[in-house]
Design a protein around this nucleic acid. Structure first.
Length: 188
DNA sequence: GAGACGATTGGCT
DNA sequence: GCCAATCGTCTCA
């Protein structure tokens, strides 16, 4: 059984890792929940920050697997990624709140559970993830990641908010979850 | 040093 | 569905 402490877990295609992270538990200082939505970004992916090579901002993407890559989006939001192979990372887009919910409500300024973590910027605000967490390991410390015992039922779709390589079905969600940032196209 | 742009969100029509 | 907010990063001069 693979776990988040095992570097080998990340040594597979990033889209595969993104699927396996659905159902995992993510938390910071005891505040967190279950990952219900992810997106994969690969080294040779025009939509990825790493596509043009390593820079000061994306250095963490080329660092050790199983570490965090946190960046600021649109000047005001933070987005949280899990680094896999060099230049590849999984963007965590949504959580189902599980623990520390009062803290999330306080930070987000709203009570609706579905609005607490249903988006990459939202979950970072709810968990108080910021630039100081960029490059930190997820295996120990205040940032925790625990993989599910068994794979969850996952639905796939196209990634959101990008202008390049829109054709890849590299967005993954927990089937039937109400906590995703946007509904997946009805499958089957 | 200047200019363009973005893996978003929340409010308004 | 449309659009403004807001600023770090990157590119080019």
């Amino acid at each position: 059984m693979s776990n988040a402490f095992d570097a080998r877990f990340y040594d597979r295609h990033v889209a595969d890792v993104a699927q396996r992270l659905i159902g995992a538990a993510l938390s910071l200082d005891g505040v967190g929940g279950m990952i219900v939505e992810t997106e994969a970004y690969d080294r040779d992916d025009p939509a990825s920050h790493s596509f043009a090579g390593a820079t000061a901002r994306n250095a963490a993407m080329f660092g050790p697997a199983g570490h965090a890559y946190v960046y600021r989006s649109y000047g005001l939001h933070w987005c949280f990624n899990i680094v896999c192979r060099p230049g590849a990372a999984v963007l965590v887009r949504a959580l189902e709140p599980v623990s520390g919910i009062p803290a999330m409500i306080r930070r987000r300024g709203m009570e609706d559970l579905r609005s607490l973590c249903s988006g990459p910027g939202k979950l970072c605000q709810a968990l108080a993830i910021g630039g100081e967490h960029n490059g930190l390991p997820l295996a120990h410390g205040s940032l925790r990641l625990e993989l599910p015992d068994r794979p969850c039922e996952v639905t796939a779709g196209t990634r959101i908010g990008i202008s390049k390589a829109r054709d890849h079905n590299w967005r993954f969600g927990l089937a039937g979850s109400k906590f995703v940032s946007r509904a997946f196209p009805t499958t089957r």
